[in-house]
């Protein structure tokens, strides 16, 4: 009991000077009177209202709507949707598709970063690769799906070649496994964007130091390069997974009948297909957010370790 009061007073004691410092800070710079402060805060109002209406509100609705039934009463019954076989399958499809494409993209992307490190950082090659990477990684979507239809669709060169070995690439492309191709196509550029800063952070002096100490290149990679790059590599890997997991456009353009979780959410939004469950899209959205939250906290931990070497 005494302990509690002691701790509250100490907390109060600790916050009091902080509040005082804040006030001094607010009027310190220009010596403006305190009443201006209220007016200044109003400057955030337009942006604040906008964010509340179009980021906070939709976000909160998306993750809480799963807890309410059609009449707006609280319920946990909607979570039955997660037991639905198709939905579970869709979640699983999304997870393995993202994982496999992320691992493949991370390895290829890391190789590209390594190769790029021999190009001049301010040169033409880097600028072109950077811009092309941004296009494919962030703005491709539907248009990349077209590119793959043009590559593997019926009567194309690749289709003809694969047809002779008895593999029909045009139907493969429209399956969940077929999405691996476009997903890797935008995963590799994202890896280049995400991982390149870590590569730039590898100081040439470290290589020189290993060489002066008589180390081989293998020793450099084993003792210096890989340990320093590892957190950045796994952080980027998580980023790739998260990006593939939440991507929608390419899949929607290729497989309209569904098969991955983002497409399932669209289907649940436009037509409630599972009987007895309201707001099933909200439940699925919450499921995605939970997975993303786990990924992002992992990423935050790895990112802190990465930054240690980038100062």
């Amino acid at each position: 009991m005494i302990d509690t009061t002691a701790s509250t007073t100490s907390v109060a004691g600790a916050t009091a000077p902080a509040a005082g410092a804040e006030r001094a800070d607010a009027r310190g710079a220009g010596g403006r009177p305190l009443r201006r402060r209220g007016a200044g805060w109003l400057g955030f109002a337009p942006f604040g209202v906008y964010v509340l209406l179009f980021l906070a509100a939709p976000g909160v609705i998306a993750i809480t709507s799963g807890f309410f039934d059609a009449e707006g009463r609280f319920t946990l019954a909607n979570f039955a949707v997660l037991a639905d076989e198709t939905i579970a399958q869709n979640f699983w499809n999304s997870i393995w598709l993202s994982a496999v494409s992320a691992v493949i993209s991370a390895v290829i992307g890391a190789l590209v970063c390594w190769a790029l490190s021999s190009a001049r950082p301010d040169g033409l090659v880097r600028a072109a690769v950077d811009s092309a990477s941004s296009v494919f990684a962030q703005f491709g979507g539907v248009m990349l799906a077209f590119a793959f239809i043009a590559t593997f669709g019926a009567q194309t060169l690749a289709w003809n070649a694969l047809q002779t070995v008895g593999f029909d690439s045009s139907t493969f492309l429209y399956s969940v496994a077929g999405l691996l191709l476009p997903y890797t196509y935008f995963g590799v550029p994202l890896m280049v964007l995400a991982f390149m800063p870590a590569f730039d952070g590898l100081k040439p002096q470290w290589g020189e130091a290993v060489a002066t100490l008589g180390g081989t290149r293998l020793a450099f990679w084993r003792r210096v390069g890989l340990p320093v790059l590892a957190p950045a590599f796994f952080g980027s890997l998580i980023l790739l997974f998260a990006n593939a997991f939440s991507s929608y456009a390419t899949a929607a353009a290729l497989i309209s009948q569904g098969g991955i979780i983002t497409l399932a959410i669209r289907q649940q939004l436009t037509s409630e297909t599972i009987v007895g469950v309201a707001n099933s899209a909200g439940v699925l959205a919450l499921g995605m957010v939970v997975i993303m939250a786990v990924l992002m906290s992992l990423y935050a931990v790895l990112d802190r370790r990465t930054r240690r070497w980038q100062r």
């Binding site: 209406l53 980021l55 509100a57 939709p58 993750i63 709507s65 939440s246 669209r266 993303m292």
Partner: peptide
Amino acid sequence: VCLLPITVPTIVLVVGFVPV
């Protein structure tokens, strides 16, 4: 606030956009 939309999948936000 500004970096948040990158971590929230767009389709999740859309679930909230529909009622809005």
